[in-house]
């Protein structure tokens, strides 16, 4: 059951990801990306990371993608404004990415992840577990990431602020 679920989700993920890449209209790309994020959230759920799945949806689909949509609409981008690359570059990039995939897989070809035991704890994906970890072991990164946000915040304001020359 979950195998089929996984496969379905996986195929959906890949299709939507490809659609992001190949959609002519940026708007579609954004929408496909949202689909993709949902399928990934599905994977998280499959992997017992329920809390993360929720956060993922909130952050990505809810915040980041909205931002994207907002910008796309603001700039009024559509298929016509999308510049096209020559076919040669397109083919080249497709081949390059494909080759890269092959190379990556090949370099992991012998990866045997060992005898798999079901984790004795199934609750690692729960909010309690993750939260504990975040505020003990990962306290410092947590706090440091605030610096990142501060910087990004000031920066975005600085850059996007409309001001006379």
């Amino acid at each position: 059951m979950s195998l089929y679920l996984f496969l379905t989700l996986a195929i959906l993920t890949i299709i939507s990801a490809l659609a992001v890449v190949f959609s002519k209209n940026p708007m579609y790309s954004v929408l496909w990306l949202i689909v993709c994020f949902f399928t990934i959230a599905g994977h998280y759920v499959l992997l017992n990371a329920q809390f993360l799945a929720i956060v993922h949806l909130i952050v990505y689909a809810g915040a980041i993608m909205v931002l994207f949509l907002f910008v796309v609409m603001l700039l009024n981008l559509n298929a016509d404004t999308e510049p096209h690359k020559s076919n040669l570059t397109k083919i080249a990039s497709a081949i390059a990415a494909g080759l890269f995939f092959v190379v990556l897989i090949a370099s992991m070809r012998a990866t045997e992840l060992g005898e798999f035991n079901l984790p004795n704890k199934t609750s690692i994906g729960f909010v309690e577990e993750v939260g504990k970890k975040l505020f003990t072991d990962f306290l410092l990164p947590f706090e440091i990431s605030s610096v990142l946000f501060l910087s990004a915040m000031i920066g975005s304001v600085l850059l996007a602020k409309k001001e006379k020359k």
Partner: peptide, 9 residues
């Protein structure tokens, strides 16, 4: 890799 392809594409 699809992501990479997109960046290239």
């Amino acid at each position: 890799c699809i992501g990479i392809m997109g960046v290239l594409f």
